[in-house]
Design a binder for these strands. Structure first.
Length: 569
RNA sequence: GCGCCUGUAGCUCAGGGGAUAGAGCAGUGGACUUCUAAUCCACUGGCCGGGGGUUCGAAUCCUCCCAGGCGCGCCA
């Protein structure tokens, strides 16, 4: 749409004595199609010109009466607005041409060229099953990495596995006390999880267990063989389980650098901080006092000498800058860790690192049950693998019922089931908490991925019946698309590139997800009002081009969210 | 106690200075001999948490209050 706004901007700028970009910025979309396609509000001019906005709009309307551009055909005042009407035959032709010529690249941009963006996402904790809680980071991080890549950025996805920390001390204690090799072999992750939950249950009655766990973690940090052997075993078994989930979701990381990856950098990191003179001893621990900045102290080393999460994140940030020379580092991590990242960035700043502010926390809300927060420790959680499987199963059932002759039911069921789970997470603003509700996850009607996929599949079906996958372009196609549903659809397609760019700029995949719902809805309205396979050849060909363009946008858009678009379902 | 986030229709949420606040779900009624009814159409449903303020204009920005959530040195 930017393209067309600029043309109007050039026509309007000299009349209102504003720069073209400023005019473009002011242009907005009228609430109803009958009011035109782009509107220039005259309020800001009113004060300067000492006239009412309506009078200004009227005067501008007179100046432009009889005028037109390549893409707009008239300008008419209405109240305090000057409304511009697009020349739909020309505009539609242009949009369809752009979409179809762009193909898989339609919507892409090169504004991010030269950027290297490290994205820290997913990051499940070893020894715990991959819970639904980690799905948010996983799908949001993955979508962001796809979206940013579409803007020309080079993205490096890092799975910052929680493979270090005192929980390993707990696991070792639990395993040594209650562990059973046979059970571990049978169902490693669930068994480890059982031990994890049991540890916390027993520790409530016997606080000495916690102390013992701290000791074991200390031994692990020192590299004692027994501790390391357990750690390696737990880590390997967990990772094998996670890989299955990532395979199912089609996610590949550039690196699986977990927290343990930075172990041998911790001493240097602490030394670096001490050399800069910003660290101090306090109650036996090593901290950076941030009181001046309104933040609680950042602790780098506990009194028992063990390091903390923050220490490892600092080491990781230094390592990533050194290794990848990123222009931005995104941390797709829950909002409950906001303070932690504020502290991290502040410490990096105090270390004199100019790139500190390029470390950006991309927070998201909690997933909660109706009864309250999820608690891994109490065993109150839902396994991601279960959610995915149930969604796929339900999709399969529905396909069996609605489309029993479908050839690849399994891949369609996977696309729909996985899409539902992903979309449920991506379509709402990430900062908001999500209430986990099976009914909602397993609902395929309304504002869901299935709604978008269904529109896509219908288009594929029409094109199959027409016997051509890629209809041939012909000049003047846009001139045949005069129905309100057709115009609305074309206009919506035009917004795709800027929606991606908005999503990228604000790290909000939900902008794109919502937009795709709009596209699908506009298509469905069109579908019900405008038959494609009609006798009039030019109309038929024009509509085939239109739906091919819609299919392109739906497919590209879903692709950026990590969601598949099956040809049938 | 302090800090951050959230509050919009019965429920879940869009909209984040601009024209009459929109969807989905749920409810009611309609549309499949016609390109897939996982769809579409219509109706019902609102002190945009509350009070002040800024502005030509506030659901949107500021401020105070209320409610909920999340944090606040030895977890991550």
């Amino acid at each position: 749409m930017d393209h067309y706004k600029k043309e109007i901007g050039r026509a309007l700028a000299p009349l209102v004595e504003l720069a073209v970009p400023r005019v473009v910025e002011l242009l907005e979309e009228p609430p109803e199609p009958a009011m035109g396609d782009l509107a220039f509000p005259c309020f800001t001019l009113a004060a300067r010109q000492k006239q009412s906005p309506a009078a200004i709009a009227a005067a501008l309307g007179r100046s432009l009466s009889g005028e037109r551009g390549v893409f707009w055909e008239k300008a008419a005042p209405r109240g305090p607005y000057l409304n511009f009407y697009l020349d739909y035959p020309v505009f539609s032709d242009d949009i369809l041409k752009r979409v179809l010529a762009g193909g898989p690249d339609y919507g892409k941009s090169d504004r991010g060229r030269g950027e290297v963006i490290v994205i820290d996402y997913s990051s499940p904790n070893i020894c715990k099953p991959f819970g639904i809680g980690h799905i948010r980071s996983t799908v949001i991080g993955h979508a962001l990495s796809l979206i940013l890549e579409s803007q020309g950025c080079r993205c490096i996805g890092i799975n910052h596995l929680g493979d270090w920390g005192t929980q390993f001390g707990k696991m070792i204690v639990a395993y040594k006390r209650w562990g059973d090799d046979q059970k571990l072999k049978q169902d490693p992750v669930n068994y480890l999880y059982y031990l994890y939950v049991r540890f916390h249950q027993e520790a409530e009655a016997d606080p000495a267990l916690e102390e013992e766990a701290r000791l074991w973690f200390k031994r692990l940090e020192k590299g004692e063989a027994e501790a390391v052997t357990y750690w390696e075993l737990f880590r390997r078994l967990s990772l094998e389980n996670y890989e299955q989930v990532y395979d199912l979701l089609g996610i590949r990381f550039s690196y699986h650098h977990g927290e343990s990856h930075y172990n041998d950098m911790l001493d240097d990191t602490i030394r670096f901080v001490q050399e800069k003179g910003i660290a101090q001893e306090s109650e036996g621990a090593l901290i950076v006092d941030l009181e001046k900045y309104g933040l609680p102290p950042a602790m780098l080393r506990k009194k028992d000498g063990a390091t903390l999460y923050l220490t490892r994140d600092l080491a990781a940030a230094l390592y990533r800058k050194r290794t990848f020379n990123f222009t931005r580092a995104l941390y797709v991590v829950g909002a409950e860790q906001t303070l932690h990242f504020q502290q991290m960035v502040k410490v990096l700043e105090l270390l004199g690192l100019s790139w500190a502010k390029e470390c950006i926390h991309v927070p998201f809300g909690l997933i909660r049950f109706k009864e309250g927060r999820m608690s891994t420790r109490k065993g109150k959680m839902i396994l991601l693998a279960d959610v995915l499987q149930r969604a796929i199963n339900l999709a399969r059932e529905i396909i069996e019922e609605k489309n029993p002759t479908l050839a690849n039911k399994e891949s369609a069921a996977r696309a729909v089931g996985l899409g539902a789970v992903r979309f449920g997470d991506l379509s709402n603003d990430r900062i908001k908490d999500i209430e986990f509700d099976w009914e909602k996850v397993l609902d395929f009607s309304g504002e869901t991925a299935a709604y978008i996929q269904y529109a896509h599949a219908r288009i594929c079906s029409i094109l199959r019946r027409a016997g051509l996958d890629e209809p041939d372009w012909f000049e003047g196609a846009g001139g045949h698309l005069g129905q309100v549903e057709e115009r609305a659809l074309v206009k919506t397609l035009a917004a795709f590139p800027e929606k991606i760019s908005d999503a990228a700029g604000s790290y909000r995949p939900s902008i794109l997800a919502r937009y795709l719902i709009d596209v699908a809805r506009d298509f469905n309205r069109f579908y019900h009002e405008c038959p494609v396979l009609v006798g009039q050849q030019e109309l038929r060909r024009a509509r085939l081009l239109l739906i091919a363009a819609v299919r392109r946008v739906l497919k590209n858009g879903l692709g950026l969210l990590g969601i598949a678009a099956p040809g049938e379902m």
